[in-house]
Amino acid sequence: MSGLMLVFLVVLIFVVLYQVARSSEMVAQIQGEQQFDKKRNKILGFSMLILMIAFFVGIVWCHEYMLPLMGPEAASNHGVQYDFMFKVTLWVTGIVFVLTQVLLFWFCFKYQRNGDKAPVFFAHSNKLELIWTTVPAIAMAVLVAIGLKAWFTMTGEAPKGAMQIEIVGKQFNWISRYPGPDGELGKKYFLNINDKDNLLGQDWTDKRNMDDIIIPNGELRLVKDVPVELIIGSRDVIHDVGLSHFRMKMDAVPGITSRIWFTPTITTAEMKRKTGNENFVYELSCDQMCGKGHYSMRAVVVVETQAEHDKWLKEQKSYYVQNHPEEFPAEAPIVAPVDSSKKITMNK
């Protein structure tokens, strides 16, 4: 009922406004078109000037409000490059923005029709047109040049000795896999997947799989100043590994393996201190629409020192061991690849 009342009220307001507006036009008619035109142009020309001032004040105000809310500085080598490029682009576009917007609103104010100016016939000028074709062209060339330079380093081969971690998306969480002591990720195939004991569909005939560690909540453990290459995949639909603090992003596409690499430069602990936020975490967000839980597809990224990382690694059991505890007596050491394969055959 109240909804109906509201609609009624709104319509009523519209009608009243329309009537008021109409009577103001009657007045205009009585004044005469010319007089009215002049008055209107004066009011609106002036309004445009006010609009411009409001616009720029609003922008500054918005900027001041937003700055403290923005995330911290980039936490990777590529991110630093990104931040630099962003600044350059912001300056270039910012200058053009201010220039053109000011001209636009200023012309509105300055050249309002007030009835006593003769028309100016100025239909074209090769010189002017040449200028504003070449100047943007040069600006674009500069932006493309720095852009491509950054792009090719970001997408180039990962450096030798980069740590490899696999990250796989599924509705609606991430799964990460570490190569274990042998430093290599084993083969997998989607037909082997099952949610009970083979999340990624590892092929157990490939011995490199035996020591692979799987973290089912997708946690990524990275080491400060050590390049990391992410091997990205998906089990079902397209997801996207979004690493906003590292300024990196890559789709996770079923049937296709994609990769990105970067070098984290600030540990989580350092970042907590820098931001003064005890709860600070690096987060991995899914950035490609993947269904109803898309917005909750989160994983945590930890950047730590080498020592911390080694300690953590030691505590992990390989996925195979976790799921086949009967094959491994409790006192046995964490599997080394060759041993483990031997053990399996021996146990049989």
């Binding site: 035109d37 142009n41 020309g45 053109t100 012309f107 509105c108 050249y111 029709r113």
Partner: peptide, 11 residues
């Protein structure tokens, strides 16, 4: 922009 420059703008 050049079109409205020095025009007789009628709002």
């Amino acid at each position: 922009l050049t079109t409205i420059w020095k025009g007789n703008i009628r709002f």
